[in-house]
C-alpha cells in the first residue's frame, strides 16, 4: 500500500566524525501518511541501496518510543514537529505533500557524530556511572513492602524515571545543556527513601561529571521540557539545583 505524498529531503551526510559533512537533497515519492517517519527513511534507503549508493545511517531500535535510540533533528526540532513523541513514533500524517524536510543529527560537542545522522551519546552513560544509582548489591534488599512510599512521591519519582535518555533535551537547548536528563535521574532517586543515603553525594558527582563531559550551562529557556518526548518536567531541574546547593554547603569537598 503506497501513498501519495512526494517530499524533498535535505539530509546531513557525514562519513565519520573526522570527515566534513553537508546537506544532500533527496526526493521520495508515494509516501503513505500512515508510515512512520523512519519507515519513510527506510523507503529512501531502499532506493539508495538498489541504486548502489550508500544508505543514510541513523540510530533506531525499538521503534515504539521507549528505547531512546532514535534521534533525528527534523525541520529545526528534535524528534520533529509533534510534541511529546519520539522520531520513531512520528508519522507522515504530520507532514504535507510537497514539503521540504531538513534532517540533521543531534548537535553537541559531547555527542560526536558516528556517521550521517547517528551520534555517540555515551556521555550520558558516564554521567549515570558517576552516581545515578542506589548502591545496593544484589541480595542486600529487605522486603519490598517494608518501605511504604506515598503514592504522590512514588508517582513523581516515576514521572522523572520515564526519561528514555534520548538526548533531545540537549539537542533542543541552545546551550546543549544536559540538565533535564541529569535532573530526571537525580530527582527520581531524591524523591524515594532508597535514594536518601547518597542523595547529596550523587548530585555533586553527577553534576561534576556533566560539566566535565562538556555540556553547556542551563539558562532556563525551557526548550528541553518543550521538546522532551516523555514530558520530563523543569521542576526536576529546580530540585536538582536545590540539592546541589545543599550538597555544596554540606559536603566536605
Amino acid at each position: 500500500m503506497s501513498g501519495n505524498m512526494n517530499l524533498t529531503l535535505k539530509v546531513w551526510r557525514q562519513k565519520n566524525n573526522n570527515a566534513e559533512g553537508k546537506l544532500v537533497n533527496y526526493q521520495v515519492k508515494d509516501i503513505s501518511p500512515d508510515m512512520s517517519f523512519l519507515e519513510m527513511m527506510d523507503v529512501l534507503n531502499e532506493q539508495l541501496i538498489v541504486k548502489g549508493d550508500e544508505p543514510i545511517a541513523f540510530d533506531h531500535d525499538c521503534r515504539e518510543g521507549i528505547c531512546g535510540m532514535c534521534s533525528l533533528y527534523i525541520n529545526g526540532r528534535p524528534h520533529g514537529p509533534k510534541d511529546r513523541v519520539t522520531t520513531c513514533q512520528l508519522h507522515m500524517r504530520s507532514f504535507e505533500d510537497g514539503q521540504t524536510i531538513t534532517i540533521e543529527p543531534w548537535r553537541a560537542a559531547p555527542f560526536p557524530i558516528v556517521k550521517d545522522l547517528a551520534v555517540n551519546r555515551s556521555a550520558f552513560d558516564r554521567i549515570i556511572a558517576s552516581g545515578g544509582y542506589v548502591s545496593v548489591n544484589t541480595g542486600n534488599a529487605q522486603d519490598a513492602n517494608s518501605l511504604p512510599i506515598g503514592k504522590e512521591d512514588a508517582d513523581l519519582s516515576f514521572a522523572a524515571a520515564a526519561c528514555i535518555g534520548c538526548g533531545a533535551c540537549v539537542a533542543a537547548c541552545k546551550n546543549a545543556s544536559a540538565m533535564l536528563f541529569v535532573s530526571a535521574k537525580v530527582s527520581q532517586l531524591a524523591l524515594l527513601p532508597q535514594g536518601q543515603p547518597e542523595r547529596y553525594l550523587r548530585v555533586h558527582n553527577m553534576v561534576a561529571k556533566m560539566d566535565e563531559e562538556g555540556f553547556g550551562n542551563c539558562t532556563n529557556t525551557g526548550a528541553c521540557e518543550a521538546e522532551c518526548p516523555k514530558g520530563i518536567s523543569l521542576s526536576n531541574i529546580a530540585r536538582m539545583n536545590r540539592d546541589y546547593f545543599v550538597a555544596g554547603f554540606a559536603s566536605d569537598n
Binding site: 545496593v136 519490598a144 513492602n145 512510599i149
Partner: peptide, 22 residues
C-alpha cells in the same frame, strides 16, 4: 519475590497504592 525486593531497593518506582504499599 527476591527480585521485587532487589528492584525496589534500587529505586525502581513500581506503582503503589495510597497507603504506600505496592
Amino acid at each position: 519475590s527476591g527480585i521485587i525486593d532487589q528492584c525496589v531497593a534500587q529505586g525502581v518506582p513500581f506503582a503503589r497504592e495510597y497507603g504506600g504499599m505496592l
